[in-house]
Design a protein around this nucleic acid. Structure first.
Length: 193
DNA sequence: GTCGCGATTTTCT
DNA sequence: GAAAATCGCGACT
C-alpha cells in the first residue's frame, strides 16, 4: 500500500477531525514505532487543554505551525507526544495515546524493559518511552526526520468516548480508537460513533 | 479484576 | 503548595 507521508497541510483542521484521521496512520521515530490506534483531541476553546489559558513556556509549540510536535512532561515522569493542528496561533493538538507496535520491536522492548508487545505502546507515557521521545523533539516538523508519519491506507472503523485522566469537559467525546484493537490503553465503555 | 498509592517535575496560583 | 492529558506494583475482593 502506497501510504503517503502526511505534511503540514494535512494537520490544518479541527483537532477532533485530525484525531480521527490519524487512527490507522503509521508513526515512526528514527524508524521505530507502529500504527496509531488511539488519539485524543485538545483545543484552546475547551478547558481540559494545556492551551486553554493561552501561551506559556511549556505549551508554546501548541501555538506554533500545524504539523509539528508538542512534547510535554506528564506527572514529572513521562514524555507525551502531540501533533499540533488547526492553524498557527490557535493552540490545538492531538495526543498520541497508543500504537500497535510494528517496527523496531527489539529497541522498544529494550527501552520499556519488557517483552509483551501488548504493553509496549498502550498509553501516552508508554508511547513516549518506547519511541525515545524527549523535550528535544518539541516543535520539530512531523514530515522530517526523525519523524515519519504515513497516512492510513484504508478507512478505519473508529470508536469514540470521553478523554482519560482529565476532570473537565467530560461531555466531549474526543478520545478516538481503532475498533477492536488489542493495543488500546483502555476499553471504550460505550463504543459510540 | 479493581483499588490505591508512590514516583517525580513542571507549571501556575 | 497543589494539581497534573500517567504508570507500575502490591493488596484485596
Amino acid at each position: 500500500m502506497k501510504n503517503k507521508t502526511l505534511h503540514p497541510e494535512d494537520f490544518i483542521g479541527r483537532s477532533e477531525d485530525v484525531a480521527r484521521m490519524l487512527i490507522g496512520a503509521v508513526l515512526l521515530v528514527d524508524g521505530v514505532g507502529g500504527r496509531i490506534v488511539e488519539t485524543e483531541a485538545y483545543d484552546r476553546e475547551e478547558p481540559a487543554s494545556h492551551s486553554h489559558g493561552g501561551p506559556t513556556p511549556r505549551n508554546e509549540s501548541m501555538f506554533g505551525p500545524p504539523g509539528r510536535a508538542y512534547v510535554y512532561r506528564s506527572y514529572g515522569i513521562h514524555w507525551c507526544l502531540n501533533f499540533v493542528c488547526r492553524e498557527e496561533g490557535h493552540g490545538a493538538g492531538v495526543l498520541i495515546r497508543a500504537l500497535e507496535p510494528l517496527h523496531g520491536m527489539a529497541l522498544m522492548r529494550a527501552r520499556r524493559g519488557l517483552q509483551e508487545p501488548r504493553l509496549l505502546c498502550s498509553g501516552p507515557g508508554r508511547v513516549g518511552q518506547a519511541l525515545g521521545i524527549t523535550r528535544e523533539f518539541d516543535g520539530r516538523r512531523l514530515d522530517q526526520p526523525p519523524f515519519h508519519v504515513l497516512a492510513a491506507d484504508e478507512p478505519s472503523r473508529i470508536v469514540a468516548g470521553p478523554r482519560i485522566g482529565i476532570s473537565k469537559a467530560m461531555e466531549l467525546h474526543w478520545r478516538f480508537g481503532l475498533a477492536g484493537s488489542r493495543f488500546l490503553s483502555r476499553r471504550f465503555a460505550d463504543p459510540l460513533d
